[in-house]
Design a protein around this nucleic acid. Structure first.
Lengths: 346, 346
DNA sequence: CTGAAAGCGCTTACAG
DNA sequence: CTGAAAGCGCTTACAG
């Protein structure tokens, strides 16, 4: 690989000036060949592009960004990537962004203390936009973005500070879907297993679920806090739930991975039949949920649409459009599989 | 978010010159304050850093890179991210790189035609190093990196062109571990389910597994090609395998996700007991494999070590060190769980 | 339609 | 230890 000589060659890639001299043109003209909107004779452009390809020349985005104030970089800021929902989203988003010639700079924040520093570092690279995936930004962080003049779009999170741009699944609506499904099946002793309590996804799903129960005259669902959106969280929650004096006959888990952890514990350690003894519903629609080993009834998030919407937002923002703060909510869809069945009251 | 006014503010972030004027110093001196190795009076540096923090100044990496020929960017190039092994790796790698002040530019290539274009785009951003995750680069692509003078490190792939830098699990050794385990259990009718046949991981695991069988005087394992390292691949392979005149009593799947798909099909569609009727072993050690729903015996890849090694490689490369082409192989570890048990010949 | 010139925000020899 | 000056690779008014 990089021997010292190679490193040195590196310092000498072909430059706009090289190309200009080679062609006997000015740098201005050559530069224009790479800007689709520039005024330039078609023949000139063709010749330049042709020679550029031969010489392996491509404009240096760093140098360009110094002048244009636009880097073509979109920062993606992620925390909780252990949830299998996100790799899929990350891939789709990245691929979509690539297809409109944007590059993705990835930032992962493990802890929230770390998050602010990482965001600052990201911002120093002047991304045109930052997309926040499943993370809550501190108000300092939001302030930092504002100062940098970098627009932020939220994916799957509705920040407390309502004045934000983004897209989520209709989580309240999803919670309602689940309540209706379970109640329709005849279940009356409902429970909710929460993930991270302070996330909007958790809040909204609970809100939709619990308020719908009240609305339909069903006893308010009991609530158990797993604390995290994770397999282990679900597994532990099952213990708490089974030691409760009034175990439920149907459980809505705030997301799929929680549900899968919960079911594994229920079946293995308590010999509970699902759906025989207890019905379980998740949320997300990760592909794993469709596998026979889980066959989980769930609310599928409209990932395609959410990604497309995000990419469209990013594109507009990159074009410098002014967008009104607004969180788009796209409805999810209940997918009935094998973890829910008629309850005793059906 | 970005109203037009905000976009305009963006064009005016505080610059090195602003800071210099504010402090009545030259830009040279101010610049030196941000270079730990520069000669500068400690008191001067402190004053500069203090004021910089107040003004929210941070050096513009783009401008800097123009001169230093080093961007602080490492490109990560990924294809097959559906394998749950990779999100974990991607996260660890990114976090590790962040901790040494490097930024990650993520590139995902869906198809291999796309791959070359994407790589070229990535290269145009002048990453100091590119890390290739679970992908095979075309020889044109490798050539493009060489021309750009960008060192490449391979993670979990050993390119056919042996002159490369990188790290993998000891896949041959892992295959041997599996053969010994299965043979030790008394199994004699062994099978191998391959993922993508042309990947080095697949080749090496098969090589270790099959050659060890021969070595120990066991009938050569039959081989079934799933074609992909995926759940669906494993699921389909199970059909092929069950329609074979000589079904095996133990199966080594080239990776965990393949094994999980295979088991789901075997249990659901053929009512096969695992490990009662057939033992199954995977490879990777993804966390899912440890869940009671799968409890898969597998070879765990030394992810921590592999990531640490990669990060170290990247760091050295960024420092301009010349490194000899060499693929480091780190041994994996067989984790015995509940999908393997004594065979009839035990 | 093309070119000469200025400048984006930095760093780095070179003097002092 | 600090500063004046050149220059990294581009783009963009401004002339022509």
């Amino acid at each position: 690989m990089a021997t010292l000589t190679e490193r040195r060659q590196r310092k000498r890639r072909v430059t706009l000036l090289d190309l200009a001299e080679d062609l006997g043109l000015s740098t201005s003209t050559v530069s224009r060949a790479f800007d689709k909107d520039a005024v330039i004779a078609p023949a000139t452009r063709d010749a330049i592009l042709k020679r550029a390809a031969e010489l392996g020349y491509a404009p240096n985005p760093m140098a360009r960004s110094l002048i244009t104030k636009s880097t073509g970089i979109v920062g993606i800021f992620v925390t909780d990537i252990t949830n299998p929902f996100y790799p899929e989203v990350l891939t789709k988003l990245t691929a979509g962004l690539q297809s409109i010639d944007l590059k993705v700079m990835l930032t992962v924040a493990d802890s929230s203390e770390d998050a602010d520093d990482q965001l600052r570092l990201l911002l120093s690279y002047q991304p045109d936009v930052v997309v926040v995936l499943a993370a809550v930004l501190s108000s300092e962080a939001i302030e930092a973005c504002r100062n940098a003049g970098t627009p932020v779009v939220f994916f799957n999170r509705r920040p407390a500070d309502a004045r934000a741009l983004g897209v989520t699944c209709d989580n309240v609506g999803g919670g309602i879907l689940v309540a209706d499904h379970l109640i329709g099946l005849g279940h009356r002793k409902l429970a909710f297993v929460a993930g991270r309590a302070d996330t909007s996804t958790n809040i909204d799903r609970w809100e939709g679920f619990s308020s719908r129960c009240v609305e339909r005259g069903i006893p308010a669902p009991r609530r158990f806090d797993a604390g995290y959106f994770s397999y282990d969280g679900g597994y532990q929650a099952a213990h708490v739930l089974m030691n409760d004096p009034q175990p439920p006959d149907a459980i809505f888990c705030a997301n799929d991975i929680l549900a899968i952890g919960l079911m594994d514990c229920l079946r293995r350690e308590y010999d509970i039949a699902i759906p025989g003894d207890i019905s379980v519903v998740g949320f997300d629609g990760i592909s794993m949920a469709s596998w026979p080993s889980h066959a989980l009834t769930t609310v599928r998030q409209p990932v395609e649409k959410m990604c497309a919407f995000t990419i469209d937002l990013v594109k507009k923002l990159c074009q410098g459009k002014a967008l009104k703060p607004r969180i788009e909510r796209i409805p999810g869809e209940l997918i009935e599989r094998e973890t829910t069945t008629r309850g005793v009251n059906a």
